[in-house]
Amino acid sequence: MSRANQLYHRSVVWLLLLILLLPLLGTLLYSLATSWSATILPSGLTLKWYGALWSDARFLTAFAQSLLVCAGALLLAVLLILPLLFVVHYHFPRLDGLMNLLILLPFAVPPVVSSVGLLQLYGSGPLAMVGTPWILLGCYFSLSLPFIYRAISNNLQAIHLHDLMDAAQLLGASPLQAALQVILPNLRKGLMVSLFLSFSFLFGEFVFANLLVGTRFETLQVYLNNMRNSSGHFNSALVISYFSFVVLCTWAASRLNKDRT
């Protein structure tokens, strides 16, 4: 490729990147503006909107509750999926195709349709969980399955599970010791990547949180929706704070993936 073609392609990429970043940069500038109405640029810059946001007890509660339900769902997914994956790949490899089909079911049904069914199923009776974090925990658990299952499954295939298990047992390790001391350390980075990516996705989930729990267990996305009629500067600071946190999680996942490769 000639130098002119390289320059052209790079210019197109940077131009597209600039176009994608312009709304975000405008939101960032608005979150830092004291006022911005009749002028091209804001009349002044301030951090008071971020101070107001991070001193808001309702925001901090919503942020903590989002962290709690996302972390709980991911912990539950790891505790259930990791042993299941090991058993499937080591003892029943033919079931892998069926498992790949089953874990895609959460994405086959639209969230609104799933929410209506869950409202009817768990809205009353002995398993009435609508309005509680438990139903949200179950929904987030199902949404995280495809990410975690696919990442760990690929990792297990890459490390040659049967060869490592046979080698460890030939050296005197029990199956449990081989799984915990040989297989699990080799899955650490792949597991961390899947957790960070799943967390970034779950942290921004809105439909299930809004329809199933709403303000009774207010998550960050529900809080953002409820504050849409407040100050635009305040909302811009909220959007930038949320976006920065998600970018940080995604960056951590990409760094782990880069180290692994």
Rank of each mutant, 00 (worst) to 15 (best):
Q6S: 11
L7Y: 08
Y8G: 12
S11L: 13
V13Q: 05
V13N: 05
W14G: 03
L18S: 14
L18Q: 08
I19E: 03
P23H: 05
G26R: 14
L28N: 01
L29E: 04
L29H: 04
Y30M: 14
A33R: 01
S35W: 04
S37A: 12
S37N: 12
I40Q: 00
L41R: 07
P42R: 07
W49H: 07
A52Q: 13
A52G: 11
W54A: 02
W54N: 01
F59P: 02
A62I: 07
A64S: 11
Q65T: 04
L68S: 09
L68A: 13
V69D: 00
A73R: 07
L75D: 09
L75R: 07
A77H: 04
V78H: 05
L85P: 00
F86S: 03
F86Q: 07
V87Y: 11
H89Y: 08
Y90A: 08
H91V: 09
F92I: 13
P93M: 08
L95Q: 06
L95W: 12
L98G: 10
A108K: 05
S114P: 04
G117D: 05
G117T: 01
L119A: 00
Q120A: 14
L121T: 12
G123V: 01
S124T: 13
P126I: 05
A128Y: 01
M129C: 06
V130T: 09
G131I: 00
T132H: 01
W134F: 15
Y140D: 10
S142T: 14
S142Q: 10
S142N: 01
S142V: 11
S144I: 09
S144A: 15
Y149T: 00
Y149N: 02
A151D: 13
N154S: 15
A158H: 15
I159D: 05
L161G: 04
D163W: 11
L164H: 14
L171T: 13
L176D: 05
L180Q: 13
V182G: 06
V182E: 09
R188N: 06
K189H: 08
K189A: 10
L191E: 14
L195M: 11
F196Q: 07
F199T: 07
F199P: 06
G204A: 12
E205M: 03
E205K: 11
F206E: 04
V207P: 01
A209Y: 03
A209I: 07
N210D: 15
L211W: 00
F217N: 00
Q221L: 02
Y223K: 04
N226Y: 09
M227E: 11
S230C: 08
H233Y: 12
S236H: 11
S236R: 10
L238D: 03
V239T: 10
V239C: 04
Y242A: 08
F243C: 08
S244A: 15
F245I: 09
V246W: 12
V246H: 07
V247G: 10
T250D: 00
N257Y: 11
K258H: 15
